[in-house]
Amino acid sequence: MISLELMSKENSIDIYFFEKENQKYFEQNLLPRAINYFDLLSFKEMTNEWLVEQDNHEVYMHLIRDFQGVIVGRINLIVDGNDKKTAELGYRIGEHYTNLGYASEAVKIVLDRAFNSYGLNKIIAGTAIDNIASKRVLEKNGFIFSKIIENDLQINNKWIHTEVFEITNL
């Protein structure tokens, strides 16, 4: 059993330490954070900006906690600026918590919130073509394959092709 908790000024330090602890792991498959991301003062300034965006319903940034309250991951919705009804989903699970079902459960909960609390109608998510686990999470939660974006990102000097998935609230 997990819980999702919106980012707040109070829990943002938890995010900082979670990201710092998993930095090397995440950078194996994701773009690295900005240089100043792990400078605590800069991180606090960024947090203030994110909280304004969240108050304006431009983003919904969640911590994923296990039943003991330990942060096991993050899951975010970035709202499309045009219609405010579409958002891009992103999530990351800490190195020691993968393959335990946390991502699937978090996506299920965040979809419920997106469609029933946040007023969103469509969620888009992308994953590297070879990220079988992430594709499984999306498909398990009802996402449908939409398209492939070739040479979408360059990570560790290697071009990554992205598979895009979508789900619409009926």
Rank of each mutant, 00 (worst) to 15 (best):
N151C: 11
L120I: 01
I123E: 01
I124R: 05
R136Q: 13
A128K: 03
S134M: 09
I149R: 12
N141W: 03
S134R: 07
I132E: 14
I124N: 01
G142M: 07
N141Q: 09
G142K: 05
A133H: 14
S146A: 14
A133C: 12
I148C: 09
I144P: 00
N156T: 03
F143K: 00
K122Y: 03
K147G: 02
I148F: 05
I129F: 10
A133E: 14
L138A: 06
D130S: 13
N131T: 09
I124A: 01
K140Q: 10
I155F: 01
S146T: 12
I123D: 00
Q154E: 15
N151Q: 13
N151W: 03
I129Q: 13
K135L: 08
D152F: 09
L138D: 05
T127C: 15
F143P: 00
N131H: 15
N157F: 07
F115H: 07
N156D: 04
K135H: 14
Q154H: 06
L120S: 02
G126P: 06
N141D: 09
K135G: 14
V137E: 00
N157E: 13
A128Q: 08
I132M: 11
S146F: 09
I123Q: 00
Y118R: 03
K122S: 05
N156R: 09
Q154A: 08
A128D: 05
F143C: 00
F145L: 03
I155V: 15
N141H: 08
F145D: 06
G119H: 06
L120Q: 02
R136L: 10
S117D: 15
I123F: 02
K140G: 04
F115V: 07
I123T: 01
S134H: 08
S117G: 05
K135Y: 05
Y118D: 03
N151V: 06
N116I: 04
